[in-house]
Design a protein around this nucleic acid. Structure first.
Lengths: 151, 151
DNA sequence: TGACAAAAGTTAGACATCTAACTATAATAG
DNA sequence: CTATTATAGTTAGATGTCTAACTTTTGTCA
């Protein structure tokens, strides 16, 4: 056991992010990066969402999400509106242009999965997901335990 | 199969990087981040190395490595010197202060491994490394195939 | 040997992300 | 009802990383 899983995951993460940027650029989406894809992913599912929901889903901070949505709005893929229920909230929704990209994003996402899973058998793929979930759950539990320690 | 391995690895990567920053700060190394640790790791093994070697080992670009070494030099952990063999090369070496941190870095590294591997059995840890290596090799092969395509 | 290509390193500028601080609105408690 | 606290979002400033362009030195080959 080399105990190098963290390094391996870091490398895989770097390569996949870089590849994704290339795919997005090739799809004509210049200036759109993987994080924008995460924001759009939730909108493809829900149609619209608040900044808060988008930030949580994309695992980014609120300020970062502000910047991401600014960019998507400039590009014309989403639209901001004040919430009617809560004057503090902003509701982000797909425009027709944004909706039109649903297929492209699904294709890229599928291509990415195929790229990563192709060297693995079905059993291996499932095993990998199981092990990663175990590791992640443990890290999140440890993190929560530590932040709760300060009370 | 949820095909979410990439997302899981991204989350694990984020959490481990953040935890590492906390550990480095707690060790009194303010301004030192995980990438500096990668640079130091090679120096702990080899004693000294060129910028080029450090960049390759840390999987960072040359400009990034310049900045990393700048910081380590300011902090007094390493020293730059012109190579005697090749006037283009800069040789980076640990100072006594840098060498003194070997133990702290080894401890943090061990703690990280324990954090990640603790929820896994020995077999599972080995399986995880095997699967990650498969995925990474495949991604690197695909990348090389694509960049070779342009000739 | 002399010109041109390759390699080592730095500088400059861009960008995605973060934390801290701020504004505005909503919820809660006396 | 009013005062305080919590929540939604943005702005400002810092940081780590990248690509592109540049300088200097080395290697190559006609």
């Amino acid at each position: 056991m080399k105990h190098d899983a963290v390094m391996l995951m870091g490398r895989i993460h770097d390569l996949t992010q870089k590849w994704l940027r290339g795919e997005l650029a090739a799809a004509g989406l210049s200036g759109i990066v993987p994080s924008h894809g995460d924001v759009l992913a939730l909108l493809f599912m829900k149609g619209e969402a608040t900044m808060h929901e988008l930030a949580a889903f994309a695992h980014r901070t609120k300020p970062t999400t502000t910047v991401l949505v600014d960019k998507l709005e400039e590009t014309g893929l989403v639209r901001r509106a004040q919430s009617e229920d809560d004057a503090r909230s902003v509701v982000v929704a797909l425009t027709a242009e944004g909706e039109a990209l649903r297929g492209s994003f699904a294709a890229i996402s599928k291509k990415l999965a195929s790229r990563v899973y192709s060297p693995l058998s079905k059993d291996e793929g499932e095993m990998l997901e199981k092990l990663l979930n175990k590791v992640l759950s443990n890290l999140e539990a440890a993190k929560n335990a530590e932040s709760a320690k300060s009370d």
